[in-house]
Each structure stands twice: as C-alpha cells, then as structure tokens.
Design a protein around this nucleic acid. Sequence first.
DNA 1: CACCCGGAAGCGTA
DNA 2: GTACGCTTCCGGGT
Length: 385
Amino acid sequence: MKLIPGHLPPIPTSTSMERLPLPLPFNADLLWRYPLGFSSMAHQNPPSSPLLDYKSQLPNSLPSDPRVWNRDDVMMFLQWSEREYDLQPIDQDMFQMNGKAMCLLTRNDLSERAPGSGDVLYNVLQILVREANTLQRMLPSSPVTPTSRHPYPLSPHSHPPTPNWNMLTQKNESLHTSHAASLAAHLMAQSNSVTLSPAPSVDSQASSPQRLDNPSFGHSIFSMSGSNGSGSNPSDSDEDADKKGYSGSPPNTPNTPSAYALMPQMPYLPPRSPKEPVSSPAAFRNTGREFFPSDSSEPNTNGRLLWDFLQQLLNDPAQRYTSYIAWKNRDTGVFKIVDPSGLAKLWGIQKNHLSMNYDKMSRALRYYYRVNILRKVQGERHCYQ
DNA sequence: CACCCGGAAGCGTA
DNA sequence: GTACGCTTCCGGGT
C-alpha cells in the first residue's frame, strides 16, 4: 500500500520547514520516510511504505528536483502521478509550465487545476522539493540532486547593478522614474525564471511565515509573505485619485529601493537569507520563492517575469506601490493597475525596455490569458484577476 | 480617445 | 538551432 500524499496532514510551508533544524546525523532515507516532519502524522498513519518508495519510482528521466523540470517533465510527472495514485485524469493544458512554476502553485491552485488530485500533487511536490533542498544543503558543492540536469547557477554575489540601472539613478529623473529605477534595480538583484506562471488563485492564504530575518532593504520588498497588512487594501478606493502625479510614490527611507539605488557601493544582496516567501494573489502567495535554492541567483538581470514583478509590487508589505498597482480584492485575486503608464515604466526599466508603455505591457498581460495565469475583469478598467 | 483584444513578427536569453 | 517570454506593431472592436 502506498502512502498517498494527499492524505498527509497539512504541510508546513517550506519556508518554515527550511528553518527547521535538520536532525543530525542526517539520513537521507529518513527524509524520504518522513520528509515533512511526519511526527505530526505519526499518530494517524505511520507510513507503511516509505516515501522513498515513490521517490525511487519516479520516472528515471525525471530529475528528482521538480524545480528543474521542463514542461515535458511536468507532463511526465502528471502522467506518472495519475498512474501511481489512481488520480482522476489531469488536464495537462492546465499545467503548461515548467517545474519551477508548478512548485509555485499552492494547494488550492493545484486543486483548481486538477480537481480531486491537487492535494496529492501538492504534497508530492512538497516532498520532492524538500528533499532537493536537503540534498543541496548536504552537498553544497554538488548539483541539487544527482539526477538534476543542471545545478542551480551559483549566485554571482558580486553581481553589480546593471549599467543601465546606474545610469538611470544618476540621472536626475523624475521622482517617479527614479523610484522606478531603484525598484527595478532592487528587483534585478533577484531572478528566478519560471516558464509560465501559476495562476492567481483565490486561496493561497496559505500564510507563509512572515519573517524579516534581515530588515535591510535588500529584503524588504521580498518579505511580503503573509503581509496581512495588505489584506484589505485601502487603495480600493484610491482608484484614479491616486494618479495625481507620483506623490503616491513610496517614501525614500533608508530602507527603500531608492535608497539602495543611491548607494551603488552597497553590496549585492543575494536572495539567500530572504527566504521570505511572497504572499500573493494566488499562487504567488504560497511563496515558493523559498523553494528556490537560496544561493541561486541567475546573472540574467533581464530574466524577471512580468507576473513575478507585479506580484512583488502587489505584495509589498509596506504597501509602497499602491499608487501603481493594488489589490482590489485580495481574496479573489483581483487587482487594479492604478497607474498604467507608471507601472509600464517600472516594468520597462526592469526589463531595460525604456519605451515600454501600458499598451505593450498589457499585451504581455494578455498572453497570460491563454495560459490561465490572468483573466480580465470585465467592465473594469485596468482590473485583472 | 482610451482601453481592450489577439495576430504576427521579431528579439534576447537560456 | 530551439523554446520561451516577452516586445513591438497593428487592425479592429467597444
């Protein structure tokens, strides 16, 4: 009899898990047997069959770390899961994404995309990711897993801000642009490319632990997890009123991106400690960012994805970007682009496409429709779900 | 007029 | 060379 992941108790967010001290001496097999801190479930269903079981039964060609899966791998995983756990047929069209994106999906996201099977998929993924993380910790100099096709790129810790970025910040741009640039610079410090993205889901309240291990700016915007503060967004009513210039821009405190921008010598902050998960509309919320190798930061500063970018703005714990974009209803995942052109500029700076405008950016957003990442809120301008 | 839509072609990156 | 995620442009609809 197999241990059905879907029957496991709720799994703590990986963020919290990652902070759990590992039992020492470490035993990888033990992890597979009790990959999720099964102490909590021991009382109900002692794993009669170690999870090691199904790990070893993963298709050979599948890297054990789901975050390195490509689309085909994801399909293979879905098919394997269907067979392995007698799941209802899964609509693969709902999973046109790579493994990294799939890992970002929350339990609810998965359940929406694979009714009846989401829990199982979620738990299996959690286990696989956790295992990969553990292996990575144990073998820091080795690829995440022996079967990984490629290890995560090591972080270019000395990775400096891009020249464009410096140029912008040194220019006497408008406050708006300056802020935009600084934000972009900050965001550039992070990158995790994901093929397609999770669709914002209604739930995902899956609170991720709210922690600010380091209050330094480098982490600020990424510490949005569980930012309940943004639960009911005051900008519900800000509507166009917020468009009165850029006065609504975030203040320039020493901890703001702008401040960071003005300190070129400030060391690059690898997204290491900021395991801060991102709470967000959806899939975003259950972070997943913490799923990524802590010391992995791709050198490609243009690699940020639009949805990721928007998510970070939306979930800024300090609500500094509500003059650009804000939740209308966080529970339903509906958000409004308060300042379309301003947001487009931000995005343009982020991608170094300085001629970016809302028309172009919205085209990119529309591409998200077809992959169920985004949908337009009919009749409401600049509102998406 | 601004927004919205989606096709088509092109580009940069991995 | 290929796939991907846009970017850019555009004609058409509301």
